[in-house]
Amino acid sequence: MVRRAPVTPLRENLPPSILILPDGRKLAYHEYGDPAGSVVVNCHGGLVSGIDIEYSDEPARALGVRIISPDRPGIGGSSRWPGHRMLDWASTDLDVLLAHLGVERFRVIGWSEGGQYALAAAHAHAGRVDRVAIVAGALPLAEPAHPERLAELNANDRRLIALARRVPIVARAYFLGSRWLSVLSPPILARLASIGLGPSDVSLITTYSNWFARAMAESVADTRGSVDDYLAFGAPWGFAPEAVGARVEVFQGDADRVIRVEWSRILVERLPEARLHEFRNEGHFVALTRRAEILQYLTTVSDPV
């Protein structure tokens, strides 16, 4: 049975805060949970924005957690950074944001594409990150030792990486169409996005079609930024999973058709200190169904009962 989150988030449609970076670019970020709580940095997924974690607002308040969720370059209210890679973002933009907010120690969560950004944050800020939660995250896609990895990625993301590299104008047309659909008909967008997904994900994406449409609309607000994001997704990480020193909790549905369950198992084997939480008959949207549980594992000193 699929778990349900309340359909109306507590902080829907609040505008993000804007930080002007040293080079003049804008960094947009959202905050959820307890403003005085321990800090969790959220790294949003692909084709969504920093509002992808807004349904965690209520459990974060209950756990005394402050969630800081920045939009990556070219996404939502954040300015583009052409040619950036994820380790660039973790070492510079995120560092400036943390200094601005007076954050010294923190924990990190990343869903889907955001999982690799969460690991990059832990690597770039070694000694400051206490724990990491990866929710249905990908393996490195550009490792010479694993040339097959990109071919194992789901068809839609694989196609968008190829278009971003070879014919970005076509990728931008796809993103533009998604933006129009997100505004004109969230239910149709949800139905199209559900093609190829498992039953639990189809149900969830349909139920939360308005949230999904808003998050996608922000992700493709600047179609050039969407291309940048996919180029970074398919680029080398700049570090190996074996180099991440923080403890990592990996959450994965065994019915996920976006990120294959085998990838999470391999990731856990490669990380120095990691544990896999695998959920039967659940898909890619375990970020919604298990949001309170994930936060609890991420933020408690001892494992929750």
Rank of each mutant, 00 (worst) to 15 (best):
R270A: 09
D256R: 05
A217Y: 05
L163R: 06
P236Y: 08
A243H: 12
L160T: 05
D254K: 07
V167C: 07
A232K: 08
N156D: 14
W237S: 01
A213W: 07
Y174W: 14
S209T: 01
L276R: 08
S203A: 14
E262I: 02
R179L: 10
T223A: 14
R280K: 15
P272R: 09
I205W: 02
A246Q: 08
V250Q: 00
A246E: 10
Y230P: 07
G245V: 02
N281P: 02
P272A: 11
A171M: 09
E278S: 10
R166M: 07
I266C: 03
S264V: 09
F239E: 11
H277G: 00
S194A: 15
E262H: 04
R179V: 03
A173F: 12
E242S: 15
L267D: 00
G238V: 09
E218Q: 11
P168T: 04
L181E: 03
S264N: 13
F212P: 01
A255G: 13
P236F: 05
G238N: 06
R158V: 10
A232I: 09
V258K: 00
G234H: 01
P272K: 11
W237G: 01
L189Y: 06
N210L: 08
A235R: 06
W180H: 11
D228C: 00
R257V: 02
S219E: 09
F251G: 03
A155Q: 09
W237R: 07
T207K: 04
Y174A: 13
Y230G: 02
L189A: 08
L192C: 07
P272M: 12
R247L: 04
A217N: 03
L181D: 01
Y208I: 11
F212R: 13
V220L: 07
R179N: 03
L176K: 08
L163N: 04
W263D: 15
F239S: 08
S185E: 04
R179K: 14
D201V: 04
F233P: 04
D254C: 11
Y208A: 04
I205N: 07
V250L: 00
R214S: 04
S182W: 04
A164S: 14
R166Q: 14
A232L: 11
I195S: 07
D201L: 05
P168I: 05
P272S: 06
P272C: 07
D222E: 09
D222Q: 04
A232C: 09
P187D: 10
R247G: 01
A240T: 12
S182D: 06
L160M: 15
L271C: 06
P241N: 02
L192S: 06
D228L: 00
I161D: 00
A213S: 12
R247S: 05
R165T: 12
R179C: 01
E278L: 15
D201S: 03
P199S: 12
G245L: 12
V227K: 07
N154E: 14
N210M: 04
A246N: 06
R270G: 06
L192H: 00
A274F: 14
A213R: 11
L204C: 03
V227H: 08
